[in-house]
Each structure stands twice: as C-alpha cells, then as structure tokens.
Design a protein around this nucleic acid. Structure first.
Lengths: 186, 186
DNA sequence: ACCTGAACACCGTTCAAGT
DNA sequence: ACCTGAACACCGTTCAAGT
C-alpha cells in the first residue's frame, strides 16, 4: 500500500468517512460501541460498501480515527524516558493518558484494541514498542518486575474503558497508581 | 418476589432456560458474547418471550447461570480472612478465582458485571461486601492503601476477561500479582 | 398467570449493477 | 478502480393471540 496511487475520489471518501466517524463519536461522547457504521456511511454521504472497502472492520476505522491521538501519546514516551527514571516516566505517561482520555474517551478503546486484535496499524506496533522500551529500561534499572510486558499493561489499562464518565475523575488516578506500583518487583 | 408463588410450569421453564444457557456457554467454552438468547430459548424449548419474561436482560440470565459459582467464591472469603492477614487472604482468593475461571471463563464476565450494571443480584452485593471487608481490614492493618474500594479491584480484574484462552496460564497470575501488590500503600 | 412464535427493529456485511 | 444501495443475515425485543 506504499507506492499505490489512489483515485482522488477514493481518498476524499476515506477522509469524509473518518471525519464523519469522529463527529459521530464526539456526539456520543466517545462511547465506541455507540458508533453505528450505518450512520457513519450515511453521514459521510457514501454507500455502505465504500465504508467497508476502506475499513474492513470497525477496529480498522477506530484505529484511523485515533491515529493522531495515539501517535501523540507514543511520541511522548521518548522525552519522558530521557528526563525521568523508567518507572517515573511510565507513571507520567499514564497520567498524561488519563488527562487525554478524559476528553477523548475513545482513545482508551483504541489502546485496548492494541492488546490482541488483528489490527496491525502502525500506531499499535509503535505503542507496543514504546511501552516495551519503557518496561525494559525499568527492568534493567530494577524498578519493574521481569515477567511483565506491554500487553499486560495494556490489559490492565483496559479497566479505564469500563469507567463511566461520572466516575473518571474519582477512579482513573487510583487505578493508574495501582498499576504502576504493582509493576514494581518485591 | 419473596412470598410469591409461581406456577410450576414457570419454574420448570426458568430452570430449563438456565440449564440451556449453561450448556450453550460450555460449548462456546464460556465466551459470554457468543451466547445467543435466540438459541438459548430454542434449546430450552420455550418461546423467546418466555426467556425475556424471566430474564429481562442478558446480564440477569448470566447472573443466574453463575449464581452458584459466585456464591462459592464469596463464601471462600471469610475463612481465608480468618487464617491469613488481609492482603494475603486477598491474594489467595484471587489465585482461587484464577483457577476457577480457568475452566469456567464466564464467571469472570459475571464478576466484571458487578462493577456497575444494574444487575442487583444478591451475589453481586455479597461479592462487593466481601471484597469490601477484605480491603477494609487490609487498610486497618496498613496493608492496603486508603483510596481503593471493591469497585476498583473488580475493574482491574476485568483485565482477565480480555485474556484469550491460550494466554490465560501465562498471563493471569502475573496480572493478579500486579493488582495485589499495587494495592499496597507506599 | 404464563406461554408461544410471528413480527419488528436494528445493524453489520455482501454483491450485482453502475460510472 | 471505485462507488452505490438494495438485499441479506443475524439477533434482540415486543406483543397479539392462545391456554
């Protein structure tokens, strides 16, 4: 898909689909399950087959919708790691994540999808890699137990996905703290 | 619904529905989302309206299916607490949970539902209460940080729900350890 | 009081026809 | 090469008719 030239109408349609999905998501304030592909296609002014052609699964669409958000989060890792000890960097990163997801809840669902789904978007690889480095350096510094990997952390962060809007401020920080402290070796 | 007398056919139907659901779940080896209410009604030999009458939502049905399992788990708390310090008791209990859910995966989904859903089954209350006591005693003993409650723990345990069969043995123990250690104050 | 099952609603997915 | 949108499949939910 690198050198492939797309027809301009295809590109435009793709963009409109993503934009429509974004709009739809912000209306339902980020509740990923409320995103109806039917409605997205209609809102984008394209046939449903077109949506399906560009995004074979709902996850693929979501991955695209949150590509920028995920990229920003991933890019934040390296600087944090340069300035702080590994576990502290992880802790800061997660706090940033919580702040971010507070207004864009859907980004949590996108992150959770990183765990297994066959979504092999570049961002997911990069997230896995970034978290992996964070953890590896933590292990090397003796701040993180040996058995954990990025998938474990992503799975635990999934708890935030089940958090309703109204409970976010009260619980999200606690949950993150538990995860970070739990990573320490004993 | 306490003193209410039910017609015997209604009772029998209810039982058959639960049994059918159980059978269906063990075929799909506990994947809760694969449970099709349509199929359950058919397998139970009742109309769909009947299923709906007895169990207004899918969660209500699941709560009933796993009532005994949940009860056993809840009942295990008090003895553990009598024999061990609180956090150790919690750790043992979770290990038991992992062992249990290894063969009955659906029980994890039932537990996760305890967090918010409007399922006010007695078992959910009891679980919340049991975990609450565990945590309270842990706090009193200075082994558990003050801010956490049963809901936080249930949410974190939800990570196990997203764990595919094949990854269970490798990851479930790690995840539980992270949660338990993360509960400690620093 | 309880049951049945056709009917409805909703949504994801496909595909023949079109440009 | 890409798009359209009717059609299909699937499932949860309801409700008029029945016992």
């Amino acid at each position: 898909m690198a050198g492939r030239e797309r027809r301009s109408d295809a590109v435009a349609n793709r963009d409109r689909i993503v934009e429509a999905a974004r709009a739809e998501l912000s209306e339902s304030n980020g509740a990923v399950d409320d995103l109806k592909l039917h409605k997205v296609a209609k809102a984008a002014g394209v046939g449903q087959g077109t949506l399906y052609r560009h995004f074979p699964t709902r996850e693929h669409l979501l991955a695209e919708v949150y590509r920028h958000e995920l990229a920003q989060l991933v890019d934040a890792v390296a600087p944090l790691l340069a300035e702080h000890p590994p576990l502290r960097a992880l802790s800061c990163w997660m706090r940033r994540l919580v702040e971010y997801a507070r207004v864009k809840r859907g980004v949590m669902a996108a992150i959770e999808a990183s765990a297994w789904r066959d979504v092999h978007s570049e961002q997911h690889h990069r997230l896995d890699e970034a978290l992996g480095t964070l953890l590896d350096q933590g292990k090397a510094a003796g701040q993180v137990r040996q058995e954990v990997d990025a998938t474990d952390v992503v799975l635990l962060l999934g708890a935030l996905t089940r958090l309703p809007e109204s409970e976010w401020d009260a619980r999200a920080p606690t949950i993150v703290t538990i995860i970070v402290d739990g990573l320490r070796p004993r």
